[in-house]
Amino acid sequence: MPKVAIRFTLNGSEAAEFVESGTTLLGALRDKLGETSVKGGCLQGTCGACSVIIDGALKLSCLTLAESCQDARIETVAALARGGLLHPLQRAFVETFATQCGFCTSGMLMAAKALLDHNATPSREDVIEAISGNICRCTGYEPIIQAILAASRAATSTAA
């Protein structure tokens, strides 16, 4: 099978690998680069568990071909905590019980981060819209919505 070289920035560090041509970003991240924080839930683009941020935009790694990410900047949930300190979103998810089985959490946090990166003070409706592509089967969403709103309040009050 033809192998191709891929190279991109993963969570701030250079990542390079040989993958089979046509491999999804999800497959390259998990199977080649050991980045198993990214989950595959449906491989159809329906559940959002595989969501990552590519060059600042939220995308589905299960439907993105690894080769199309040459030289891109890719962020996963593994990069959220800095220097042993949890990101406000992570703290809020822990405190408001926004994670139960945990399988949707990585993607959900990426969707939430993509929201807060562009809109630091989202409304409840903005939050619901931002996570509408991410399915959670445990929480009923309310604790997640509360966590994202709490994180935005925490970040705003720290900045002030």
Binding site: R30, D31, G34, T36, S37, V38, K39, G40, T76, V77, A78, L80, A81, L86, L89, Q90, F93, V94, E95, F97, T99, Q100, G102, F103, T105, S106, L109
Partner: peptide, 21 residues
């Protein structure tokens, strides 16, 4: 009480069965 697995879940460190190769 915080869930004992919450920290692993929010950092992506929790190991699900398929997180192995």
């Amino acid at each position: 009480r915080a869930r004992t697995d919450a920290l692993g879940h929010v950092t992506g460190a929790s190991r699900f069965f398929a997180d192995r190769n």
